[in-house]
Amino acid sequence: MQTHQKQYATIIFDLGAVLIDWNPRYLFNKIFSTPAETEHFLRNICTSDWNEEQDAGRALSDATELLVQQYPGYEAQIRAYYGRWKEMLGGTIDDTVAILEQLKSTGQYKLYALTNWSNETFPIALTQYPFLQWFDGIVVSGREKMRKPHACFYELLLNRYHVNAADALFIDDNLRNVTAAEACGIESIHFTSPDQLKQVLTAKAILS
């Protein structure tokens, strides 16, 4: 019995750690004397949970002042988080960008980005990474004041761009976000490396 390969119409990318190498350690390893100090700071003060509130629309100034009040001894380092935010950008993940370019060149797929990103810092990425213009649409959490892994954020993209979840594919490095997308009926790939992504897309006959 012959099996038919599933046909996809839409591919949705996460940006950070998939296409763009963003990591606060690039900055704080310059600020602190040891990696252990950096890890303590990011685990206990400027935490990922705190950062996600900015991704969900909280003003960077409000977020900064909140932590400065709580941890006055770390004021300079806290202010550096957004004051020197550009130093957290490590460049593009070139091999994934090459995959995106290959997908774009086929003309077969609608390409979208769904990203947890502050609306105040995203314009920096737009000017720094020309490949972002290749997408048919980008949904930025900070602009919409909602974020992954909440179902409403995925549904916003589906509804705004008239995407059928059944023939869409979502790519994200965060397993939590992948699980949430699948709960919304969107088949997903848990990204671990460009090579792994290329293998999966080839197996699905999306890439040749």
Results as ranks from 00 to 15, higher is better:
6 K>R: 13
6 K>W: 07
7 Q>P: 02
7 Q>D: 10
8 Y>P: 06
8 Y>W: 12
9 A>S: 15
9 A>E: 15
10 T>A: 11
11 I>C: 07
12 I>S: 06
13 F>W: 13
14 D>F: 09
14 D>N: 13
16 G>M: 03
17 A>L: 08
20 I>A: 06
21 D>L: 08
22 W>T: 08
22 W>Q: 11
24 P>E: 07
25 R>S: 12
25 R>F: 10
27 L>N: 03
27 L>P: 04
29 N>W: 01
29 N>A: 04
33 S>D: 03
33 S>V: 02
36 A>V: 02
37 E>Q: 03
38 T>P: 01
38 T>R: 00
40 H>T: 00
41 F>V: 02
41 F>Q: 00
41 F>M: 00
41 F>A: 00
42 L>Y: 00
44 N>C: 05
45 I>K: 02
46 C>M: 04
47 T>R: 01
48 S>W: 04
49 D>E: 05
50 W>P: 10
50 W>A: 12
51 N>Y: 09
52 E>T: 14
54 Q>L: 14
55 D>K: 02
56 A>C: 08
57 G>N: 04
57 G>D: 03
58 R>W: 09
58 R>G: 05
59 A>F: 11
60 L>Y: 14
60 L>E: 15
62 D>E: 11
62 D>L: 12
64 T>P: 14
64 T>R: 15
65 E>T: 14
66 L>Q: 14
66 L>E: 15
67 L>Y: 13
70 Q>V: 06
70 Q>D: 07
71 Y>R: 13
71 Y>I: 10
72 P>K: 06
74 Y>F: 13
75 E>M: 11
76 A>N: 15
78 I>S: 12
79 R>A: 12
80 A>N: 08
81 Y>G: 07
83 G>M: 14
84 R>D: 07
84 R>I: 03
88 M>S: 07
88 M>D: 00
89 L>A: 11
89 L>D: 15
91 G>L: 05
92 T>I: 02
94 D>V: 11
94 D>Q: 12
95 D>T: 08
95 D>A: 13
96 T>G: 15
98 A>L: 09
99 I>C: 04
99 I>Y: 06
99 I>D: 05
99 I>R: 05
101 E>V: 01
103 L>I: 03
103 L>S: 01
104 K>P: 05
105 S>M: 01
106 T>L: 04
107 G>V: 01
108 Q>A: 12
111 L>V: 03
112 Y>G: 04
112 Y>K: 06
114 L>G: 04
116 N>C: 06
117 W>E: 07
119 N>L: 06
120 E>T: 06
120 E>H: 05
121 T>L: 10
122 F>H: 09
122 F>Y: 12
123 P>G: 07
123 P>C: 08
123 P>Y: 10
124 I>N: 08
125 A>F: 10
125 A>C: 12
126 L>S: 13
129 Y>K: 09
132 L>T: 11
132 L>W: 12
134 W>N: 13
135 F>W: 06
137 G>H: 08
137 G>E: 15
139 V>M: 15
141 S>Q: 07
142 G>Y: 05
147 R>K: 09
148 K>W: 09
148 K>V: 09
149 P>M: 02
149 P>R: 08
